[in-house]
Design a protein around this nucleic acid. Structure first.
Lengths: 190, 190
DNA sequence: AAAGGATGTTCACATAGATTAACAAAAAGC
DNA sequence: GCTTTTTGTTAATCTATGTGAACATCCTTT
């Protein structure tokens, strides 16, 4: 059983040795190379993935063929197309690795089995999702009430570790602006 | 025990008669008049509220004093400042009734007690929040990839029942545009 | 070291949507 | 029924951000 994942789970719930064993039997560790896809738009999202090491972006291609970055995931973050995972219908998003990335994966069937065998996991995932939901709402609010420059500064403050690792044009996409405009903002800040 | 709430919960989990009794002991039914606040920015959000009848808006006032509508809630929707409810810290948002509104409320303490006594509720709220999270992510995506007109059309299609009940300028605020620009879009559509 | 691709910058011009202000229409109060 | 308040519209002007194209850097790979 991966220690990163285990200590992450233990922040929220307590598990017995036996439960940990059950859990570990249903988690699959997998490593993807830079550029590989964990989830592909149009295919069913098979796993919820916990990032052990590396970095991935979630994005989609709109009707005009433009790429939009929805989120990034680094160590100790979860990534998936949750809508697709829940309903087992085709994904709206892609998840692609920006570096060599190792993840711990839960399949849909495994997770349902685990919920039945370790009811505490319902609590664990409820808490995780609650936090993600709150963060998501805050992002909506920021997008409406802040300028591009303010959003960029906020991003830098909140995700400095991500900012160091991913190219500017992906950050621009995440912020909902063009790379040229981000470049202009960065120039102004010096 | 309110029938709306009960049948809503039964869509996701099965409860015994005894569990329903426990549940009903911890739910408070309350009616607010038009204009009253269920949650106030700056105060701790005491309840998660399930709307039985009526309509409410969630909004916040930014540093320039402008109001931004974050979401609406009508029959069978939940409303709260979830971030504040979870952490029991001051709320970022207001929830104000747009009509006379009756809600079923769960306090933080009640809910923790209920989770302990009816573990299935963890599952129920996990599922609810997962759906809310997915919807929230989709909204972020729409805000980035669609024009104001497209967002308005999408809103009309998805929330026709809300569109009928709330003034245009609140819809404009929800969409992140001015009421004047929404008016222009509406004129174009005829 | 040269060549090629990925990434970042600058600038001129275009546009979606904001702002201000005036007015129209509908709803609520008296 | 008339007045006041709330809600919705129109139009002129302004601004934040997008678009396209050219160029500059910086990694890779050979």
């Amino acid at each position: 059983m991966n220690t990163n994942l285990l200590s992450y789970i233990k922040r929220y719930i307590n598990l017995t040795e036996q439960e940990i064993t059950v859990l570990s039997e249903h988690v699959k560790i997998r490593t993807y190379l830079k550029g590989q896809y964990i989830v592909q738009q149009g295919e069913v999202c098979k796993y919820e993935s916990f990032v052990i090491s590396g970095c991935a972006k979630t994005f989609f291609i709109d009707t005009e063929g433009n790429e939009h970055v929805v989120m990034f995931a680094i160590e100790n973050w979860w990534t998936a197309d949750l809508g697709s995972f829940i309903t087992q219908e085709p994904a709206d998003y892609n998840v692609q690795c920006l570096e060599k990335t190792t993840v711990a994966q839960f399949s849909h069937e495994s997770l349902e089995l685990l919920y039945a065998q370790i009811p505490q996991l319902e609590r664990f995932f409820r808490i995780i999702i609650q936090k993600a939901y709150v963060a998501s709402q805050k992002r909506i609010v920021r997008n409406f009430s802040l300028t591009a420059k303010e959003r960029y500064l906020n991003f830098r403050k909140q995700y400095r570790d991500i900012e160091q690792r991913v190219p500017q044009y992906l950050i621009a996409s995440y912020l909902g602006i063009t790379k040229q405009f981000l470049s202009k903002i960065r120039a102004e800040l010096i």
